[in-house]
Amino acid sequence: MKVSVGVATMLLLSGVALAQQAPEEDPIARYLYPPDVIMAHSQELGLQEKQRTAIKNEVQKAQSTFFDLQWQAREETEKMIRLLQQSPVDEAKVLDQADRVMALERQVKRTHLSLLVRLRNLMTPEQLSRLRSLREKR
């Protein structure tokens, strides 16, 4: 009787714990792994030299694009701020400028997503499952 009550309590607690598991924060990011995470765990993942080189090349390529795009985005944002400081605010001009800023943001996101997908595709299934468990531990 005591044993079954104990087991029942344990299972009840585990059931509640199961219920309380927080859902993943980001629906897309949970499937992707940033390059710094991969490189920080390169030993645990058993990265091959070929993989390291490929990751480095992809990151370097993406980073030069990021730098250009982010620089442009800053300039376009400053222009938009100046437009917003006027009184009255010219709505049409602000929206045009916002389109420019958002177009640059879109390019940044696209380049970043492309990098993350390529990095993911460079990983073996074992490395991916290791990365998944490393993320769960954090």
Binding site: M1, S4, A8, L11, S14, G15, A17, L18, A19
Partner: peptide, 23 residues
Amino acid sequence: LLRWSVVAIVLMVAFGVLLRDET
């Protein structure tokens, strides 16, 4: 009694799983 305990345990776990789906 044991049988009822098992039934109770199964119900509790099912309740937990349902609660998780709900969340």
